[in-house]
Design a binder for these strands. Structure first.
Ligand SMILES: [Mn+2]
Ligand SMILES: [Mn+2]
Ligand SMILES: [Mn+2]
Ligand SMILES: [Mn+2]
Lengths: 225, 225
DNA sequence: ACAAAATTTTAGACTAATCTAAAAATATAT
DNA sequence: ATATATTTTTAGATTAGTCTAAAATTTTGT
């Protein structure tokens, strides 16, 4: 529409490189990691990396992994912005659950129209976070910095607010739904079991629930002031 | 998402075959017509027709043109349904003009999720027509039959209602906007000029406007009862 | 430090969708 | 009816993205 510089596939590679780099605190992403996340083989990834490097979207030294160039990062942030805006649309306007939206957003994130993105953003009242608590990059391609902590790193009896999840699988999200753990909930760790490191948590100052260590590691929270 | 049986490209061919067949009252569509509408060359169309015939989406006799099979028609109607629903969304929810939406809908029509289409339909309150007056096929793949007439075929002084357009170019739609000719307007042909066959029209029983013969041929109306 | 293991790249092949040029079929026009 | 023009199909290439198998490079373990 506006100017389809990149293919669907190239956009996906750049987006995944961005997200993996972020997850590794800025360290290079390896060929095998990309193969896993693109559902392809390492050989295919090597080919694509050569192409993206040629177009100056990535910094690539053979065998050494990749990072995004400024140009590549802007593309990636544009795709992530659309992905997260569409997720807000699907939940807020169409009533989908947060466990049902990712695969649809994977398609919608490639719709190419600056004007559409702008109007969608306004229609949604310029949300700053998606339904999983992930920040939405602004129209200028700037990702808001957020600093959440894992619930598993929070001191006992410290009141915190549930802000996000570090795993987006439907199974995990449905598990949280069942326990009524939602974004914005108040949480306080009362006790960690010596036996299996599972957590007793006071939810919204009212009910006590029990979650596994695995769950506690994937809940992102911020200190409640 | 649900089951991506067909490529983006195959879906486009089936949609275009449907729309051209409809326009020709059920007559076969030729290779050259398809080449024109798919923005490709006749040789490419021949290849694709062989493939679509093999998959039983079209009836194809070499050199004789094509029609859709029942299976092909269902695919085409599904794509057209999505196209028109998204156009309603873009106009009714995001405030786009009817001249700005087609190219965006060309992309959105390929988003694959039954559940999304269903929820979008409900969100839009199950519209029966798109912003150009074209009927929206239902979820079962049935196209509502509508019988509009060209304004150019209507008797003098017969009151009619503006129901649709047979050309969707932004230039034509913007031209109608400028003259305040919108869907639902009341129209009555007062006179046809002997000189250039242009029309004097009473708009909404209030103002008199003048439109070219070309415009009158592309306005679809129904008798006002 | 060096052999073994793991990772990454290259080589060569395949599919989908496209193209140009040439051949085949159909339509048209005297 | 037959030559000419038009349309359509086929033949042979090309590009993007993928694959498997083999070669090259880096990492690991003793
Ligand atoms: Mn997502
Ligand atoms: Mn998300
Ligand atoms: Mn349209
Ligand atoms: Mn339309």
């Amino acid at each position: 529409m506006d100017n389809q510089l990149l293919s669907f596939t190239e956009e996906n590679y750049l987006k995944i490189i961005y997200l993996l780099t972020e997850r590794h605190n800025g360290n290079e992403v390896s060929t095998n990691q990309l193969a896993e996340h693109t559902q392809t083989k390492a050989a295919s990834v090597s080919d694509m990396l050569r192409k993206l490097a040629e177009k100056n979207y990535i910094n690539y030294r053979k065998y050494q992994g990749v990072t995004l160039t400024e140009a590549g990062e802007q593309i990636a942030l544009g795709v992530i912005r659309k992905h997260r805006l569409w997720e807000v649309f699907l939940v807020e306007k169409l009533g989908f659950g947060w466990d049902e939206i990712h695969d649809i957003a994977e398609q919608l994130e490639h719709i190419d129209s600056k004007e559409l993105t702008k109007r969608l953003d306004d229609f949604l009242e310029n949300p700053k976070f998606d339904p999983h608590g992930d920040p939405i990059p602004d129209a200028k391609g700037k990702m808001p910095s957020v600093s959440y902590q894992k619930l598993s790193e929070i001191a006992l009896n410290q009141s915190v607010v549930m802000m996000g999840v570090s795993v987006h699988s439907p199974a995990f999200l449905q598990h949280l739904d069942k326990q009524q753990i939602n974004l914005g909930c108040g949480l306080k760790v009362l006790e960690i079991s010596d036996f299996d490191k599972s957590y007793s948590i006071l939810l919204d100052g009212k009910t006590t629930i029990f979650v596994s260590n695995e769950v506690a590691k994937n809940l992102l929270v911020s200190i409640d002031e």
